[in-house]
Each structure stands twice: as C-alpha cells, then as structure tokens.
Design a protein around this nucleic acid. Structure first.
Lengths: 207, 207
DNA sequence: CCGATAGTGAACGCAACCGTCTTTTAGGGT
DNA sequence: ACCCTAAAAGACGGTTGCGTTCACTATCGG
C-alpha cells in the first residue's frame, strides 16, 4: 500500500517540495513533531499550530485524528513507548536492581523520558485527571511491579531481607530518580544510578 | 450618590463588616485568598480576578503590590511559611527520623503543603525557572540539610552506618513523600510515615 | 483515466485571562 | 473638618491558542 519512494528523501528540509504524505507516514511525522515540541517546550508551549507546522501539515489533519491536544499527546506517548520488558533472573538481587536502575535512567534521559517528565511536571487540575490514570498504568505501575518481582525473587533466594517485598520499598527507585530529575537539575546519569544502588537500594534490602 | 447605603450590595457573607481594609489587613486577606485559590484549583485556575474577588477587593489593589501573578504567589507562600526549625538531639536516629517524617507529613497535609504540592506539580517551562530556585532554597534544601544533620549525628553516635550521611540518602524521605502524594492518590498519613520509616529509612541507615 | 478520499493552508470565531485604567468612595492623618 | 491617598468595582484592550470551516489540490483505488 505504501511506496518506499518518498519525495521528501534528502534534498532539503524546506525545499518547497509539495510533500503530501498520508495515513501512517503522516501520523508518524505528527507524533515526531508532537514529541519534539513537548520535550523542548513542555505541554503549555506545545501548540497545535506548532505541531502542524513542524510536521509540515495543517491543523485540520490533526483534528481529523484527535479531538484535542491532550488526546494527541497521549497517543504520541503510547506510540513511542516500547512494550514493557520483563526482568530476567540474573542470579542476584543486586544484578537485577542494577539492571532496572540503569535501564530506567536510560529511558529517563531519552526523548520519550524527557517528554514524560515534562508532562508529569506540568499537569494542572483538569489535565491531571486525564493523564494521571494513564501515567500510573503505563509508567508507575509496571515499574513497581517489576521491582516487586525482583524483591520477591530475592526474598526467596535469600539475598533480600524478609518482608522487604512491599510496594513502599519498590517505589523508592522511581521516586528517587524523579525527585532528582525534577528538583536537582536533572542529573540522572549512570554514576548517580550506582550511588543510588550502593547507598540506598542495597542497604535497604540487604538481609 | 446622596444615599450612603452602598456598603455591600451583593451576597456578602461579611454582612456590613469593615469592607474597606488597608495596608497589612488587606494584604493578609489577599494572601489568604491566593492560598485558597492555589490549593483548590491549582496555579492555572488561580486568576487575579478570582483572588481579588475572594479577598473582596479589586485587581488594582493586587497590581499595586505585585508585578505579576507569580510574584503574588511567591510572596503568599513566603508569608505562610514558618521559619525552619532545627531538629533537637533525641538520643537515637530512629526517634529523630520519626520526628522529621511525621513533621513533614503534617506540613504536607496542611493548606500550605497542598499549595506547594500543587505548585510543584504544575510548573511549565517559564514558571519553572522562576519558582525552582525558590522551592529548592526554601523547601528542598532545608529538609535535606536537617536530615543530613541527623545522619551525621547518628554516624557519630553509632546507630547509623558509616558513609550514609550523604545527600542521596537524605533525599529519600522527601522523594518518597512527594512521589506518594503525586502519583498514588495523595495518601500520606502517619501510618504511611511509619511504614516508610520501618521499611525504607531505618533499614537503609542501620549499621 | 476518473472520482472519492484525504492533506494543505489559511482564515475565522471564541473563550479565557492578564494587566491597565477610570470612576466613585472611604479612612485617616494633620 | 478637610483633603489626599488608597481601596472597591469593573470596563477595556490585547494576546494567546484552541478548535472549526472552507476552498483547493494531490494521491490512491478501481
């Protein structure tokens, strides 16, 4: 149904070519533009005009697909999210926690992560209701579930203290990373991940 | 114009009270109204008209005092904040941490706490720059410093593990409370404080 | 080759709300 | 008592950006 031969190829971003995409190709460009705008300026500064302009299309194409700005943002995030991946048994809680922490940090520093962070930090009362369930279900919940799995496995294995496999403990990692990202200049590199692991997570769960 | 009976023309529950305040009294009423609006509807829904109306005054009185909505909010928060109180030596790190956690929870559930939480969760890119320094200096920094003091004292006393007196560890408590308040329905009661203490903070710092 | 479908681009209406300004009135200093 | 300043109340203009609509045109299926 779609020809790989696209006229937009490479001879100039704004070369004046007609560039009329349809269906999935256009939708992908719109998502791209929406994530860019969301990442760089936040939800408030992202405008439908801006997205349409950056995607080289018009607002009508947007409103034919989504009823509102919020709907567009949600779909753009969903489309960019990889399916949650299970954590394999790596033999020790330390290795598994390290795996999750470093993976989380990578995601947090990706463009998707920046968009999600921006969005989370910018929800007024009405948007909050709209996005909170989504964020909880797609971001918070899977993370906590994964860590809880690690803790249970470690409890059975013996390298996690008995009784530590509870949601309060599982929440520490995401809470720390988001707190850091939000209030301390956003420096969430691998080094911080190691410190978090060594100073907080491992001491907290050791038997 | 010859009839002096224009005291209060509308639904005023004030009922013939001294409707025309000045100076400090008026300012206090404005702060009150601003905090109310901020708490109930968030920063976006708080409007200058709304604050003026709730304070039974006009916008002119607001703009004579503050250059913008953001300035008003900041002053209202500063005026409502109690001076930071030092943590006394209670003999054990557990007692001192419990003291801080429960104190933090009380503040978080007060009207001031609700206003601060709302504000933190709703900062678009331009406001963020404006408020971030303020929040860090007045909220995040003092809290971390207080906990760091507890950790150092405990380290010297021997009931806190060596090397735990670092900011990453000190940040765990506020990070957890804010994460909870923001993403998990806002249930931050004393019971949760005890669980946080027993499952996270004490295991993390025990020698 | 042709008609249906969908994208383009721009104009418009509309609502919210900021910040200014004006008019009338009350308090309080002197 | 008098006058000056500040307050109350609201009208006003300006900006922003959402969401709609319209005329036109490229692309695709048949």
């Amino acid at each position: 149904m779609d020809q790989p031969d696209r006229r937009q190829s490479a001879d100039g971003p704004a070369g004046g070519a007609p560039l009329r995409r349809r269906g999935k190709a256009l939708e992908a460009a719109i998502f791209e533009a929406a994530l860019d705008q969301l990442t760089s300026g936040g939800f408030a500064r992202m405008t439908m005009e801006g997205v349409a302009g950056a995607a080289q299309t018009g607002k009508a194409a947007l409103y034919r697909r989504w009823a509102s700005k919020a709907d567009l943002v949600m779909d753009a995030l969903v489309a960019a999210m990889p399916p949650p991946t299970g954590i394999p048994d790596l033999g020790s809680a330390e290795a598994e926690l390290r795996h999750v922490v470093q993976g989380y940090i990578v995601v947090l520093n990706s463009r998707l992560g920046a968009a999600v962070r921006t969005l989370m930090g910018e929800l007024d009362h009405e948007r909050a209701e709209f996005f909170k369930g989504f964020l909880h279900e797609r971001v918070v919940e899977p993370t906590a579930a994964g860590i809880l799995g690690i803790l249970r496995r470690g409890e059975a294995r013996g390298d996690v203290r008995k009784g530590a496999a509870v949601s309060t403990v599982a929440d520490v990692m995401p809470a720390m990373l988001l707190y850091r990202a939000k209030f301390c200049g956003g420096v969430c590199d691998e080094e911080f991940g190691e410190e978090l692991l060594g100073q907080v997570l491992l001491p907290m769960v050791r038997p």
